[in-house]
Design a protein around this nucleic acid. Structure first.
Length: 549
RNA sequence: UGGGGUGUCGCCAAGCGGUAAGGCACGGGAUUUUGAUUCCCGCAUUCGUAGGUUCAAAUCCUGCCACCCCAGCCA
């Protein structure tokens, strides 16, 4: 059998399993799943798991299920399942099935009764506190529950009464009967069913007992015929329990195999749902889709192309080392993707007026949409000889090797003409108020005419007459230093992803649904490409806040 | 200090007994109507550490050290 070349340890395991012939009865089909709990929004950390799972599906021509791991009714809702589905689709992933763990409640219940009848589970009356107290510690074994040896009949009766709503929340639980002295605390008779008189968003009032993750997850995997259950490192300690649950449930071989990998961490990026929620709840951001949030909705609104996120995950790779990827690596992927796909636009964020004294009338210039795609496609840009340029593109006292404009110097206005600065108008404070220039008609962009006039640099501009209609959306600082919810998180909060920029203003398109940004010059985001073509930054940038001072 | 994991360049990460891939970052040079892009070139005699086995070790063995995870009726 032809095995694809493994590029990470997970694929190595899969290849070994395939080579062993254990899936021959199933046509050697690999089946994986992506199992989020619909209790929140997907963020960039989830993209790694998505890429790994969908990557396996692609590579092995297998199947993948999107499964909502909805076993805790208190936290879950359709709002989240819809948002998760949208996010997965936005990333361009196509799953084979959409499943819900809650659809397995009947089967799960049946298996729980089997556990009882096989003597592998018992109803325990201990309170949550008592269970904790008798669980033992990292170094001491736990104590067996006094209810551990109830008869099968009694257990069955009690469990059915639990199901029928006879007991209040917390009165009883169903526990797996494993080993209270196991060095692995997860094996010390873990709770597998709890009572919760809470309606489920999909099952309504049908149940008042709900299965725990450690029980529901392996069973769900087995029911779906999952071959490889990929999850993050913190579940390594649960693997023996995962295997136990499947074995005692009596599933036929081959059963799913759990493999763990390190989750994604990015410098200065908050991946904790708890703190992200706090930002939303306390009004630090406009919502889960605020472009400063590391949620997929936020990244989308910020203009990050989905393919950039996928490339990022591919670049980062899969391993078991705890690592923190520098956000520069993500940014490079965004730039790379945008460089080849985004339409270019000119933008000015800190403007100063430049007037060409020998220019009259107005004209339309051709602006190349994307110099890297080879299409040569252009769009018209109006030019009236009176424009705004970036303040930093002009220097009263040019430093050595300065390539842009200064008095007596030449520069090209991108897609337009080369201009020479003849004079500068200063205001009462000595700040540059207006730059007066002469332009050279023969240097028109695209002109074949040879000119003696040369310019070392090229700068962006926005026409003073036609660029003014636009609106400029600015970021406000997210939090002041003393307002961080927790000092430990201050550093991580102070990050690019959620735009705590110490008051620094950065542009972003608020209305368009499909925005993108590009790092045009080292140090700051300047121009914006827009796939939808609706809002180019030259239109967004503006003028409102900055130009009328 | 019980158990489970992990330690390879500033950051990710290949490597699986035969003499350290790649990406990001960084530095240098060329091209350039974005100081962008593109393009070359440079960037670990060394793999947590101390020993051992071997002709040969990041890869095998042993002992240390460091960091992460586990005591929810969350997932």
């Amino acid at each position: 059998m032809e095995l694809p070349e493994a590029t990470n340890f997970i694929e190595q395991y899969i290849n070994e399993d395939l080579a062993s012939g254990k899936y021959e009865g199933r046509g050697n089909q690999i089946v994986v799943r992506f199992p989020p709990e619909p209790n929140g929004y997907l963020h960039i950390g989830h993209v790694k798991a998505l890429c790994i799972n969908f990557g396996v599906k692609e590579k092995y021509n297998g199947k993948i299920n999107l499964r909502m791991d909805d076993t805790n009714p208190a936290k879950e809702d359709y709002e989240y399942v819809n948002s998760i589905i949208d996010a997965v689709k936005w990333l361009g992933f196509e799953y084979d099935n959409l499943f819900f763990a809650s659809d397995y409640y009947d089967k799960l219940y049946e298996i729980a009764e089997k556990y009882i009848m096989d003597g592998n589970a018992y109803v325990c009356d201990l309170t949550a506190e008592e269970i904790t107290a008798t669980r033992g510690t990292l170094t001491e074994a736990g104590k067996e529950s006094p209810y551990r040896n109830r008869s099968v009949e009694e257990n069955l009766k009690l469990f059915r009464e639990m199901r029928d709503g006879v007991y209040p929340d917390g009165a009883k639980v169903l526990r797996a009967k494993i080993d209270m002295s196991s060095p692995n605390i997860n094996m010390r008779d873990p709770v597998i069913y709890r009572i919760a008189h809470v309606p489920h968003y999909r099952q309504g009032d049908k149940w008042c007992i709900y299965p725990m993750y450690d029980f529901a997850h392996p069973v769900s995997d087995a029911l779906e015929g999952i071959t490889h259950s990929l999850c993050s490192l913190e579940f390594e300690n649960h693997r023996p329990l995962y295997d136990w649950v499947i074995e005692k449930a009596g599933f036929a071989q081959p059963v799913p195999r759990q493999i763990e990998f390190a989750r994604l961490n990015i410098t200065n990026t908050l991946m904790s749902k708890r703190y992200l929620k706090k930002l939303v709840d306390e009004g630090f951001v406009s919502g889960w889709d605020d472009p400063r949030m590391p949620t997929l909705m936020g990244l989308k609104n910020r203009g990050v192309p989905p393919m950039a996120l996928r490339k990022f995950c591919a670049d980062v790779g899969v391993a078991k080392n705890y690592g923190v990827v520098n956000i520069a690596q993500l940014e490079e992927c965004v730039r790379d993707e945008l460089n080849t796909t985004a339409e270019r636009a000119m933008a000015v964020t800190d403007p100063v007026k430049l007037t060409i004294t020998n220019y009259e009338g107005e004209e339309e210039l051709d602006f190349e949409k994307n110099p890297t795609d080879g299409s040569g496609a252009t769009r018209p840009v109006k030019f009236t000889g009176s424009v705004y340029i970036e303040k930093s593109d002009f220097a009263l006292e040019p430093p050595p090797k300065f390539k842009r404009l200064f008095k007596g110097g030449y520069v090209r206005l991108k897609a337009a003409y080369i201009v020479r600065c003849d004079d500068v108008v200063l205001d009462e404070k000595g700040e540059v108020k207006e730059i007066l220039c002469t332009y050279f008609p023969e240097t028109r962009s695209g002109s074949e005419v040879k000119s003696e006039v040369k310019a070392k640099g090229v700068i962006q501009w926005v026409d003073a007459k036609y660029g003014k209609d636009a609106e400029f959306v600015t970021y406000k600082p997210l939090l002041k230093d003393e307002e961080y919810p927790d000092q430990d998180y201050a550093e991580r909060l102070n990050c690019d992803s959620i735009r705590i920029t110490e008051g620094k203003v950065e542009p972003y398109a608020a209305e368009s649904s499909d925005k993108s940004f590009q790092l045009m010059r080292t140090g700051y985001y300047k121009a914006c490409g827009c796939a939808s073509g609706k809002a180019r930054l030259s239109e967004i940038v503006s003028l409102k806040d900055n130009f009328n001072k």
